[in-house]
C-alpha cells in the first residue's frame, strides 16, 4: 500500500519538475519550438498563423492537410505570436493582445495593452510578460524592454520600462531573460524580481535578431546566420558553434 502512494508521489514530483523546467519534452509526433519573432505557431492540434491583421486557425489533427478553421481580426500590423500554456500572446504595432485557447479552434480575446506604435515581440509566463519595443523603424515609441504584470490577464499593467537601444527578439529561461539588440548585441537579464531586471552580461560581437531557449542551448538568429551558446549556467552563455555566412 505504502509503495503505491510512493509511486503516486514520485510521478507527481516528476510532473512538477517538468513544469518547473518550463521545457516540455517533445514527442516525435509533437511540434517544435520557434523564436519570438514567429508568425506561425503550433499548439496541440492547431496551427496558428498571423496574416495581415488576422489570426488564422488551422486544424492539423491530420498533419498532412491543414484544414482552415477560423479567422479572428486582431489589429492592424500584427507581427509576432507567442504561445504559453493555453494562451497566445500577440504583438502588434499598437499593443499586446492575449487570446485564450480554451476553445483552441476559436481563440478568444482575454486582455490587451496598448502602447505607442513600434515593433514588438512578446514572451511571457504565468505572472509577467516581457515586450520589446523598437520605435525607430516602426513608430515613435521609445526603444526599450517593457515589463507587464499579467496576473490579471484581462488587465495587463505596465510595471517597468528599461530603455535599451534597438531591442528585437527575446527568450525567457526561468529567472533569466535574453534580449536581442541587433547591432548592440545580446543582453542577459536576471528577472528574479521582474519589476527590476538586472543586467548580468552583454555579448556585443554579433548582430542578434532572435533566440530560442532549448534545454541547455541558446539558439541565436544573428544577421548572418546562426550561433549556439551553452546555457548550462543560464546567466553566462558560452559560445559553442557559430554558423555564419
Amino acid at each position: 500500500m505504502k509503495s503505491k502512494y510512493f509511486l503516486v508521489i514520485l510521478l507527481w514530483c516528476t510532473g512538477l519538475s517538468c513544469t518547473k523546467d518550463g521545457v516540455q519534452r517533445e514527442a516525435s509526433s509533437g511540434s517544435g519550438k520557434g523564436g519570438s519573432l514567429a508568425k506561425f505557431t503550433i499548439v496541440g492540434n492547431y496551427l496558428y498563423i498571423l496574416r495581415g491583421s488576422e489570426l488564422d486557425t488551422y486544424n492539423i489533427e491530420n498533419p498532412e492537410t491543414p484544414a482552415f478553421g477560423s479567422s479572428v481580426h486582431i489589429d492592424w500590423g500584427v507581427e509576432t505570436l507567442f504561445p504559453y500554456n493555453d494562451k497566445l500572446f500577440i504583438g502588434s504595432q499598437n499593443g499586446m493582445f492575449i487570446y485564450s485557447l480554451n476553445d483552441p479552434a476559436t481563440p478568444a480575446l482575454l486582455g490587451q495593452a496598448q502602447h505607442l506604435r513600434s515593433c514588438d515581440p512578446v514572451v511571457a509566463n504565468d505572472s509577467v510578460a516581457f515586450v520589446t519595443l523598437r520605435g525607430n523603424a516602426c513608430g515613435p515609441a521609445t526603444d526599450g524592454l517593457y515589463v507587464y504584470d499579467v496576473k490579471d490577464i484581462t488587465k495587463p499593467t505596465l510595471v517597468k520600462t528599461v530603455e535599451i537601444p534597438t531591442p528585437s527578439g527575446l527568450g525567457l529561461n526561468d529567472s533569466i531573460l535574453y534580449v536581442c539588440q541587433q547591432q548592440h548585441g545580446l543582453s542577459v537579464y536576471n528577472i528574479e524580481n521582474p519589476g527590476s531586471p538586472l543586467l548580468r552580461r552583454e555579448i556585443t560581437d554579433a548582430y542578434f535578431e532572435d533566440v530560442i531557449v532549448y534545454y541547455n542551448i541558446l539558439i541565436c538568429y544573428v544577421n548572418n546566420g546562426l550561433r549556439l551558446y551553452d546555457i548550462s549556467t543560464p546567466s553566462n552563455p558560452v559560445l559553442l558553434t557559430s554558423l555564419e555566412n
Binding site: E26, S28, S31, G32, K33, G34, G35, L37, A38, E209, D210, I212, Y214, I219, C220, Y221, V222, N223, N224, G225, L226, L243, E244, N245
Partner: peptide, 25 residues
C-alpha cells in the same frame, strides 16, 4: 550560403533557419 538569414525553429536534433524568401537551411 547565407545571404539573408531569417527566422529559426528547432525540433528534436534539427534546427531550421529560413533564408528569407529563398528556402530553409
Amino acid at each position: 550560403p547565407v545571404k539573408r538569414a531569417g527566422k529559426i525553429y528547432v525540433k528534436g536534433n534539427y534546427i531550421f533557419q529560413t533564408e528569407t524568401g529563398e528556402g530553409i537551411h
